[in-house]
Design a protein around this nucleic acid. Structure first.
Lengths: 191, 191
DNA sequence: ACGGTGTTAGTAAGTATTCACTCACACCTC
DNA sequence: GAGGTGTGAGTGAATACTTACTAACACCGT
């Protein structure tokens, strides 16, 4: 693994485990097993390093390839929500830390706007899946798919928030995906 | 207004507007219009001041008094979700900042555990309302009220997250409460 | 009424430490 | 020997926190 990658891993680890406030250059260098000076060979400054972590060490949000029309809507939704729960569990600690600095937030916002990425992507993707199912006739034509997408994505985010707050202890909650999907099914399914 | 209150207001304002990273003692003192030394007359240390802000300047989450059995379930839920949207819109910026420091998070967690407060309160309260309605026979006996509460609370939190990320611009979204409540109604209402 | 005594509210000017960041220099490979 | 990779030893600035001090005010015995 290249030094740059080691530094990025170390920085991400410190940010996750101790919070951005403690993610000092000294702490990151110690975690990466190198000198502080070396950080500056690979990154312009500390904010540049943070930005690289945000862009290269945020867990990718990959919804499984569009399964619209295959399997059952319920099964697909459960799988998608499971992916959302994992995604937010991994990304929430670092995402939240962005809000600790207005300047970091502003830079991140600009960087992200350029890529078409951003925090609205998950619910837009889920919404797109539901729209495809609606087009396929497996979801009621009058269903508010945007609202449903927001409910499901929100519940996943909320769960990550609680886990991050209370510590790693109560992380996995088996069957949560199924339980979250069930209440919105009557509003979705053609009947 | 007492000096202590002025300092708390100033600290909360700086934390909100510029983020905890920029909430230095100097900055807070300047915002409060006093000397840094005075901060230490009223608080043990900076973390103590932050803790006081978290405990005394977080917007109170007040669900309107238990309306179970009155009005319509839909109307009550819309009102409750509206309250949640306001609550999270106000509290998210400061809540998120807790995660910037593992030690601050740990202290806040302990302080909160003592009060029986914490981030699980909103969805427990909403869940309690739904259970009351179930007992009153206005919600299906087989409805998963916990899952529904998590969906609605999560969607409100998610909305606050997006607003905090993109700036104050796209804050109010009229009719959002109604749209979020509608998809869970079929799973709740007795038919 | 008046001086003495203590308390409260406030600050200017520090100190020690930590922070992000730099630089001169060493080591290595080609 | 040139250029990439790496470091020890710093630097000035910023930070959290302290100290020594003042002005205002309340209380009280005489």
């Amino acid at each position: 693994m290249s030094t740059r990658e080691r530094i990025l891993d170390a920085a991400a680890r410190v940010m996750r485990e101790r919070g951005v406030a403690h993610a000092t250059t000294k702490e990151i260098a110690r975690a990466a097993g190198c000198s502080e000076a070396l950080l500056y060979r690979h990154f312009d400054d500390k904010q540049g390093l943070f930005m690289a972590v945000l862009q290269e060490r945020m867990p990718a949000f990959a919804l499984p390839d569009d399964a619209a029309g295959t399997g059952t809507v319920e099964g697909n939704l459960v799988r998608l929500v499971g992916g959302l729960l994992d995604f937010y569990a991994d990304s929430f600690p670092i995402s939240a830390s962005i809000f600790s600095s207005s300047t970091l937030l502003a830079r991140h916002r600009e960087a992200i706007a350029a890529h078409g990425a951003g925090p609205q992507v998950p619910h837009l993707r889920l919404q797109a899946y539901l729209e495809a199912e609606r087009k396929a006739g497996r979801v009621r034509p009058d269903a508010d798919v945007e609202a449903v997408a927001r409910l499901l994505v929100g519940a996943a985010l909320h769960h990550a928030f609680l886990v991050a707050f209370w510590g790693e202890g109560n992380a996995a909650e088996p069957g949560l995906g199924e339980r979250l999907v069930a209440p919105v099914l009557p509003a979705l399914l053609t009947g």
